[in-house]
Design a protein around this nucleic acid. Structure first.
Length: 600
DNA sequence: TATACTTAGCC
DNA sequence: CGGCTAAGTAT
């Protein structure tokens, strides 16, 4: 941080307060001339290079009550005889000593001549309120102003390297749409009679104050080759506006950064007189602003220039640090109001140390839970849902989920996530188990199920419920599988998988439900147990599998037809669900897996 | 030295 | 444009 920078920032704050005081005094109808000493003689605006001339004028202007960013012309401090000559403007001594000829009607315009802030005498006749309005009006009207009427789109395009050739694209206007393209546009406002032409020089400056020249280049129609700046001349009497079509941003490589800045200096482009600043390490290469410098040329060949005006910030679309955030999809959009549902989110590139996932509804807000290590290669985040504020919701609640970059609070568009009421038996497994135990499944082994399949309907409404671990009906799991007397036992094992049951999709659950109903599975498990376990994991499975294959047909031949009703997926899933079972069961099951793979 | 991320540039 | 990536840089 160089000292000039600091002085500049202090001074701008001082100016702000001076403005504030001025306004207060004006409004209270202060009756005497007030002279506030300034810590540093304010420069004649056109006398360059004194520390004070580096004051960011933007700050002063921000105290104006105008909604548009209006830059007051340098030389505002002069009596508003118009147009003024350059010489007149630059004659600071004259300015300082000249009595404010129109002070009574133009207090603000003469409020900062010389070394003190002079507020004019005010005597009755004009109410303080009116006077304030007049002052503002005159402050605004006395000179032409350059105003950005269409700001550039902040993330419209990516900066292109010179080596990428071609046009480097063209900056669009912020209100540009697919069908109605706009460009950044400026307008010369205020009195223009007697103005011959206006030369506007556009260059790139840094995003932050003080706006230093930026090494990146402007390229396009009105940018002389290799200049990196854009120059247009307009006649405000015929057209006050100018749109910059075909204005692209060409980025320079880091190594050529110094060279580029040097070039800019040789072009005399340093709109805010920031001088030769060496420390460029902190330069943000992903963000620039357009800076418009305006030179007025009057009919009588006198020249005059306005304070530079900067646009809003343009960010490089490609840069991860500034790019638009986007959620591509989640693997599931529903989960328990208890929270802790594991979600996989795919998104555009993020920085793992600068990103959060926000759940919102009304005034409620909570963050998705994840560690930096849960951000996968910048484009996916595995996180857990936060618990909803109300754990006892009676119905589904939609909340919005969005990505937010911590550093600049930029947010993605949101997606909707639905919190589901806490339901300990969402698939009515327990109920089924109860019913089936009552009926006595084995008595009607071929009774299928259509009515029960229909019972899956509630599940359809809750495709991603949270399953609380069911009470293990039999503490001996082996018993459950070894003696799957009915599908209820199987159901039990399914629902006690160590993996997060939320990962079941609706389809999977439907299938499980269906499988629960078919007698085939009972047979399968019974047969499996009888089967000699010839499969050896160490050995090449092929030969054993062949025998298993045979075995399979022997054991299941009669059922083969029924079996084919169930797809690989369905079967596979069923088997996989049971793979977590231990010891010989597991071996048996893995055998079955291979049998299935070979046989089906 | 491995991994994560950025830069510069290619297609 | 925008996806992709080798090379470079940072951690």
């Amino acid at each position: 941080m160089n000292i000039q920078h600091q002085i500049g920032s202090v001074m701008s704050q001082l100016f702000f307060f001076v403005d504030l005081i001025e306004e207060i005094i004006t409004q209270e109808g202060e009756q005497s001339v007030v002279t506030l000493p300034l810590p540093c003689p304010p420069p004649a605006d056109l006398l360059p290079q004194t520390p004070c001339s580096q004051l960011p004028r933007m700050h002063r202007q921000s105290s104006s009550r105008l909604s548009q960013p209006v830059l007051v012309a340098r030389g505002t401090a002069h009596p508003p005889t118009f147009p003024q000559s350059l010489q007149q403007l630059s004659d600071s001594k004259e300015m300082a000593s000249a009595p404010p000829s129109r002070a009574a009607t133009s207090p603000a315009s003469s409020s900062r001549p010389g070394h003190g802030l002079r507020l004019p005498h005010h005597r009755g006749g004009v109410s303080s309120k009116n006077r304030g309005d007049t002052s503002m009006l005159e402050r605004v009207l006395e000179k032409p102003r350059l105003v950005v009427v269409e700001e550039p789109k902040d993330r419209g395009m990516r900066f292109r390297y010179e080596c990428e050739g071609r046009s480097a694209g063209s900056i669009l206007g912020v209100s540009s749409t697919e069908t109605n393209k706009t460009q950044p546009t400026i307008e010369i406002q205020g009195p223009v009679e007697g103005l011959k032409r206006v030369k506007v020089t556009v260059s790139l400056v840094t995003k932050d104050l003080p706006h230093r020249p930026h090494p990146h280049c402007l390229v396009g129609k009105d940018c002389p080759l290799g200049s990196g700046i854009c120059v247009v001349t307009i006649n405000p009497n015929s057209n006050r506006r100018h749109s910059f079509a075909n204005l692209g941003i060409q980025c320079v490589r880091r190594k050529e950064l110094d060279l580029s800045l040097q070039k800019r200096r040789s072009q005399n482009i340093d709109p805010f007189q920031t001088g030769h600043t060496k420390g460029i390490e902190d330069l943000d290469m992903n963000a620039v602003r357009l800076c418009f410098q305006c030179e007025l040329e009057w009919e009588d060949s006198r020249k005059d220039s306005l304070s530079p005006v900067v646009s809003s910030t343009i960010y490089d679309k490609k840069a991860t640090t500034t790019s638009q955030l986007k959620i591509t999809c989640l693997n599931q959009y529903r989960g328990s109001c208890i929270g802790k549902t594991e979600i996989y989110m795919l998104c555009d590139k993020v920085q793992k140390d600068d990103i959060e996932i926000i759940f919102r509804r009304g005034s409620w807000k909570a963050n998705g839970e994840f560690a930096q290590t849960d951000v996968h290669r910048q484009i996916a985040i595995v996180f857990k849902t936060p618990p909803y504020q109300d754990q006892n919701i009676g119905e589904e609640i939609d909340v919005s989920v969005s990505l937010r970059r911590v550093s600049d609070q930029m947010e993605s568009e949101s997606v909707t996530f639905t919190y589901l009421p806490h339901n300990p038996d969402p698939y009515e497994v327990r109920r089924k188990i109860r019913i089936k135990s009552d009926i006595g499944f084995r008595e009607k082994p071929c009774l299928t199920v259509s009515p029960h399949t229909a019972e899956c309907a509630p599940a359809a409404e809750q495709p991603f419920p949270f399953l609380q671990p069911l009470n293990v009906m039999s503490s001996d799991k082996r018993l459950c599988v070894a003696q799957p007397a009915n599908s209820a036992a199987l159901a039990d094992t399914c629902y006690n998988m160590p993996q997060d049951p939320n990962n079941h999709t609706h389809d999977e659950m439907t299938i499980i439900n269906q499988l629960l109903e078919i007698p085939l599975l009972d047979m399968l498990f019974e047969s499996t147990i009888d089967m000699p376990c010839e499969f050896d994991e160490e050995s090449n499975g092929n030969s054993t599998l062949t025998s298993m294959d045979t075995n399979f047909h022997q054991n299941f031949g009669s059922c083969a037809q029924d079996f084919t009703q169930y797809s690989d997926l369905q079967f596979n899933m069923l088997v996989n669900e049971n793979q977590n079972l231990k010891s010989e069961q597991q071996e048996n099951l893995s055998t079955v897996v291979h049998v299935k793979e070979e046989a089906l």
